[in-house]
Design a protein around this nucleic acid. Structure first.
Lengths: 188, 188, 188, 188
DNA sequence: AATGAATGAGTATTCATTCAT
DNA sequence: TATGAATGAATACTCATTCAT
């Protein structure tokens, strides 16, 4: 509650970090950029996050919260296939953003993978959460190769995000999304 | 041959750039890093490349040369399916590198996509070359949806590269490669 | 007063810039020179001035303040001729500095004129201010050719500053100053 | 004659130096700029001029030759007043150049005056030559204050060059030239 | 807690000068 | 004599991090 009195600066910083780091990349983004986006004085950032890396961590956390929120909502759908296809459709709905900035977690992962300081692990955790959820859906469909299918589906999404982004063409993601939906339908 | 005595610094710099930029990322890599890797004095780099961006461009060029060399070799194989599967197998062979640093062009694309200065286009050109080649193979198989299949295949590779890299598990790429080969076989 | 305790770094930097740029010229002066002259850590300069050009601008501003202060004081003299001659006498009083470094604004103008980035305009504004003031004095003397006389007087000063500087002989300015005073007296 | 076989590179370099240093200023001009303007390979410059300063010296020499040529031509005129007015008219004829780049020797002097390495003296020599010539004309008119008048006339020219340049207005020099001609007429 | 200010270790880039041939 | 290549010292500018209040 002190938090709300303070205006939730920590939250604003985390949200701003998630957005700005996605748009500009980790290395290109300065603390001042994030502070400015969160409307927080630069000198004040350090009361909430000791280092830039902690802000990156917070941004990953934001993406994690968003992911878990999404999966919770999907879980309310009655059948695994419906859930998987809704997931795909969600990706397709974001194709304009993907064409401009790529997948938020994917680009973050790509950049952090170059490092070896623990931060690269954090995105891996997210990725595993998503893979696990997918695996459960495919397993529910009776597939023995559920994990492999989960990896294949996530691969397709991450790959098409990158291609959509590089070629600046959102329609590529639309077409691939349709293909993936047909693929899901054909599974059971 | 004077050139070879002097050691072909330009070539060494381009090769070093391709390697180091892949390993460390564009932003994290300093000119000194590249100069050092090429065993060239820092001040001398500018005799060959006026800006860091030109070195990045040269690195992309190196990847392009490698790609064209690979496709030329694949073209010697008699059947489209053999060619496509050989391509996939080549990717799988590089899985240790992918697990450590990701796909060279993919990570480069991901980082450059954040920018809007023409360099982002350069990787796009490479990507299109590869897509065009793939499309020709699928078309030779009599597929009307050749372009879509090309995009799907490249997506899978780019995506599995990222996942393999993030989860630091080369075996993921092995499994996905096997799956893709089976998929290619089933197309005919 | 916190400001005065901290020492008004911005002001010190502007003052140091005005002095050092006059003594060494714009191109020959490094940011470190100015920082050192102002007793400010180099890295701190950028907190106050984002670029070297902004420091040059601040130096021009300092010269402008000095000029306006001088003209305000001259305006207190009762007659136009007295004012003009006091202006000339002020120049002559500075002849040692002129012999060593030239006229502060003149040398700045000369160097900046080579450029075309807006900074060259800034000195022009100063010059016009002085010309306007002179023109008013000549007009008050009933001269129809007031503007032309203003230009002539400023020319003589700028020219003799350059000659005094080049020949390293302050007495040249003394003699020219005397001549100009007689010229002013003869105008009535 | 070896010289002419070589294509007079030394001369071309000196001429290019005179021109480019005038247009860009000493500090802003690189050796490569001059070499390029003279169409001489950069590495070759050092066979003719050991240092950049020697090129500056050569440029001053060029201005000296031009000055002596001009004065020789003026000396053919029958009367001192005609000679002085022709000198002024020559300046006015160059007013477009002056508005763009200032007086060649004046701007050079201004920049070199900041230094204390002998190069500043070289322009002084030129200036004295011109002053001496002017003094002889005024003396021929029977003026006891010939030197003072010489200094005054040169001051006016140098000053109006600077003002014309700073305010980017060639007409200022036209008006001042007319005034100076009237002043010369009124002397004898 | 809050914040403007301070700091110093980088980083890309420039360029006069020298060298090898 | 000629020249492409080499070199390193310098310089403007950035930014994460820390400090003083």
């Amino acid at each position: 509650m002190t938090n709300s009195v303070r205006g939730g600066k920590r939250e604003r910083l985390a949200a701003a970090a998630a957005r700005v780091l996605h748009e500009q990349g980790v290395e290109k983004t300065t603390l001042a950029d994030i502070a400015h986006a969160a409307d927080v004085p630069v000198g004040n950032v350090y009361y909430y996050f000791k280092t830039k890396d902690q802000l990156v961590e917070a941004a990953i956390g934001e993406h994690g919260r968003a992911l878990r929120g999404l999966l919770d909502r999907l879980d309310e759908l009655p059948e695994p296939q419906r859930r998987l296809k809704a997931l795909v459709r969600g990706w397709v709905d974001q194709r304009e953003v993907a064409a401009r900035y790529g997948c938020p977690t994917g680009t973050l992962a790509s950049e952090l993978d170059k490092r070896a300081d623990g931060l690269d692990q954090a995105v891996g955790v997210l990725m595993r959460e998503l893979l696990d959820w997918m695996e459960r859906q495919f397993a529910a469909l009776g597939r023995e190769d559920a994990r492999e299918l989960a990896v294949a589906l996530l691969s397709s999404y991450q790959g098409i995000s990158l291609i959509t982004n590089t070629l600046r063409d959102p329609e590529l993601m639309k077409a691939e999304g349709d293909r993936l939906e047909r693929w899901i339908d054909a599974l059971s």
